[in-house]
Design a protein around this nucleic acid. Sequence first.
DNA 1: TTCGATGCAAAATGTTTGCAGCGAT
DNA 2: ATCGCTGCAAACATTTTGCATCGAA
Lengths: 155, 155
Amino acid sequence: MKQEIFKNMLREKGLKVTNQRMLVLELMAERPGQHLTAEEIYDLARQTYPEIGLATIYRTVQVLVDLSVIDKVSFDDGFARYELGGVDRESRHHHHHAICNRCGNVFSFQGDLLDTLEQALLDRSGFLVTDHEVKLHGYCRECREAMEEEQDGKS
Amino acid sequence: MKQEIFKNMLREKGLKVTNQRMLVLELMAERPGQHLTAEEIYDLARQTYPEIGLATIYRTVQVLVDLSVIDKVSFDDGFARYELGGVDRESRHHHHHAICNRCGNVFSFQGDLLDTLEQALLDRSGFLVTDHEVKLHGYCRECREAMEEEQDGKS
DNA sequence: TTCGATGCAAAATGTTTGCAGCGAT
DNA sequence: ATCGCTGCAAACATTTTGCATCGAA
């Protein structure tokens, strides 16, 4: 069970296993691929634990980030967001986001094309890359089709 | 003169040419490659124009971003930052950042290796990329050398 | 029993906005 | 003379922190 692994991770760090921490883990684990804000996690958590505080959510996601259970991401909309981390280091390293300018949906995809770029950077300037973030902005298929239709209607 | 081009850009948009706007442009133009926060721009601006307000800085950088004179970037340290934009669309598209985890310095570099990835994404899922952000995290040469020395000292 | 974790409220932080007066056109 | 721009202060929104209490170990 995943929860047992998490409990051991907490114990190894000398942290306590609390209902709040287990609940937030569960909420995140149930929603792989989603990018939740603290407020969204708070709202979800209150459905089963109404007395939980927003500050606890912030403190708990920090713990989960420190344990590499979730990752903090930002789409520059003023909110920090959290998503379930990949299983291993490699899959996380190759996890990227494509954000649609029109509908705002975020599409995740995998790609290892940066490896070449990172090697070149190391050779050229001595910078050793340990992590990276790639955000692509553009238009998803649905929005592109919708925009073409709008265009057709006009002409 | 670059300033005249900027004045015309403002006029074309029906915006007024003010001392504050010219000053902020000048400050940014003098510092290519730097990533300044609003507060930093504010401090620089007050050196020659002490009565300027921080709100004006925020409003002015927004104007400059809209005119594509500068770009807004974020290194997730809680500050929005602004840097002089590349001359053309292509050079901006291939402008990336490598951020050192130890000294916090930001190194800019050019690279077009994402073009392949973006074409693959379009083919596979219909997502058309119009812009992208790449942030690499790691250790710069100086910090790597410093860290090796620290390590040597210990053993 | 101990000391970390929680909930609440207050504080902090970066950014935005309302408004009266100023200044470019 | 107009109407957009500015400076100031207040408002905002997200996140952090202080503190008394709670609860896991």
